[in-house]
């Protein structure tokens, strides 16, 4: 996957990054998916017991191509250490890290609002331009239009006659997030809309495009929902959201932004994990999914602490699940293929 970067590109990593604010500062948010292949230099800096996505991103930062500016949501220890390493070893023009609370209480919302106020100030300092209410509202509206298109694609994915191959479907999100010059694809992308298959939901944090999902398709699975922070879970704005008018100034818009991001479908790092499980179960029932494939990244503490409870929740709802651990590189998929095949036969 080739990604275009320019002097206005700002790299981001975590779905709790308010992209609208970066756009309102006149910059272009671009999600990084990391270097392809091994990550020897990043490993020597971070150690090998760290999140492989983070290591792949640091390798990209060191070897390029990479943007000159990055914004890091301090969502987990792995990302906090990525921030440190990026700032220290990659020689960027701009790095900024902000806190993200673990829950949706009123103090947590205040904490997050203060954090994104800080981000707005840092972006203003970097660009030398103020972030105005008008620009933020415009960025929010643009984001809503993009997400409405992605939401429509998600709806189509639930219908057998319109369904895309899973890599093709994920490619819609990736292309939008990474400003990719060539949307990802592999063997799976060759699948055509309407292909038959057993409906499954895939859940996880982030999956490298063009690798693991193709296995699900090739084993006779039809992915009806991709509960990933790089796919369905990246949709923040629902049709019911109505941001305040720009006339009221920047502060109400920032407050609305903070509230909207904290209210979204939660990542496993949030304490509302039982709500996430319930949403997943409801999605499975609504979409007629016959099972869930869970793809945790190695060394992802938030996901791994939640994993046993997630399996119990699915089991309690009578939904079969399969755990496929990912090292993000996912270049040795033989064993995965066997396990997914067996799972597909079982469900």
């Amino acid at each position: 996957m080739r990604t275009r970067f320019n002097s206005r590109s700002v790299g981001w990593f975590c779905a709790y990054t308010p992209l609208e604010l970066i756009a309102a500062a006149g910059l272009e948010p671009v999600r990084l998916f990391g270097a392809a292949g091994a990550t020897p230099t990043a490993d020597s800096i971070l150690g090998t017991s760290m999140c492989p996505y983070v290591r792949a991103c640091l390798e990209q930062g060191l070897a390029g191509p990479a943007p000159r500016a990055v914004v890091v949501a301090g969502c987990c220890d792995n990302l906090r250490r990525l921030y440190d390493a990026w700032e220290h070893y990659c020689g960027p023009d701009f790095t900024y890290m902000f806190d993200v609370p673990h829950e949706r209480t009123a103090p947590a919302l205040e904490h997050y609002l203060r954090a994104i106020r800080g981000l707005a100030g840092a972006l203003e300092e970097y660009t030398g331009q103020p972030v105005t209410a008008g620009a933020l509202l415009e960025a929010i509206e643009e984001r809503r239009r993009v997400e409405a298109r992605l939401g429509a694609a998600a709806l189509e994915q639930s219908r057998p006659e319109d369904r895309l191959g899973s890599e093709e479907y994920m490619g819609l999100f990736i292309a939008e997030q990474a400003a990719s010059a060539d949307p990802p694809g592999g063997a799976a992308a060759a699948r055509r809309a309407g292909s038959p298959g057993k409906p499954v939901v895939v859940t996880g944090n982030i999956i490298r495009p063009g690798r693991l999902l193709g296995v699900v398709d090739s084993c006779g699975g039809a992915v009806v929902a991709l509960d990933l922070c790089s796919a369905d879970r990246s949709i923040t704005w629902g049709p019911d959201h109505s941001p305040p008018d720009a006339q009221a100034g920047l502060e109400p818009l920032l407050a609305h932004l903070a509230e909207t991001y904290l209210e979204r479908n939660p990542c496993p790092r949030m304490f509302e994990s039982m709500e996430r499980h319930q949403r997943l179960i409801e999605d499975c029932r609504r979409l007629g999914a016959r099972g869930v494939i869970i793809v945790p990244l190695m060394f992802c503490d938030p996901f791994l602490y939640d994993l046993p409870a997630l399996e119990r929740s699915l089991d309690g709802a009578g939904i079969p699940s399969l755990v496929v651990n990912s090292d993000y590189i996912d270049d040795n998929l033989g064993q995965v293929l066997t396990r997914v095949e067996a799972f597909m036969e079982m469900i």
Partner: peptide, 15 residues
């Protein structure tokens, strides 16, 4: 001492 499961500490040991 980089404890294997400790991202916060081991992840910045080099730095």
């Amino acid at each position: 001492f980089s404890h294997r499961g400790c991202r916060q500490s081991s992840g910045c040991a080099r730095q």
